[in-house]
Amino acid sequence: MPLANPPAPQITRTRSAVTASNVWRAYGSGEAQVVALRDVSVQFASGAFTAIMGPSGSGKSTLMHCLAGLDTTDRGTVHIGDTALTGLGDKALTKLRRDKIGFIFQQFNLLPTLTAEENILLPASIAGVKADPEWVARIIATLDLSERLTHKPTELSGGQQQRVACARALATRPEVVFADEPTGNLDTRSSGEVLRFLRRSVDDFGQTIVMVTHDPGAAAYADRVVFLADGQIVEDLHRPTADSVIDTMRGFENRVPLAGEAR
């Protein structure tokens, strides 16, 4: 079910926050080999909200993991800003994720032992630095989490948990935020809240966001939608609407059952 269309974005950026060039990634070997990404090249502009779409198994998560330094590429290069990920060791990659990347996963975003506030400050704590308190306060206010700061994750609803995850992802002002189906487990209302916040963080704070989603409605919040199929980019849609996304999906892949994918 499509969500209300977001305001039309202005695309004026030139610098790219994330760049993938000729990225290949295969799993397994021999007969059982699955090529998850085949020669993917894509750039994500700084200060833009990009959605990645595609059928299940098309390589969306793999692409995101490769871009975020969670997975390694077989061939090709990935840059976050000016930093090349290829060839970096675990330590350097960890540090890069900690300092330059924010994550929002579909679920299990929060540590159950920590309060919402501690979860928000988690990346800073791990880095042993102090997060900018004004900035954090602003995010918390925007996400309407002030009342929930001392709560443990189990005391929060799914939507609230995802909002805490959003705050956590943005708290260190990362160069890019990667979100893998952040609304996959949420009801429509909570999804809307999360997506509106992501949109705002791009518009108001100039945040760069790359989001994997199944939901054309969610994709419509983005400035641009990249379509993956069989590990290749098959379509690149700017200023999407829910309808244009659905049309595009219909256009390039008949075998994708539309509603079946959205959970």
Binding site: A68, K91, D99, F103, L110
Partner: peptide, 16 residues
Amino acid sequence: TRELGLLRAIGMTRGQ
């Protein structure tokens, strides 16, 4: 496992 995965994903080093 998931918690550790999360922590490692958002930047906890192996040493930590």
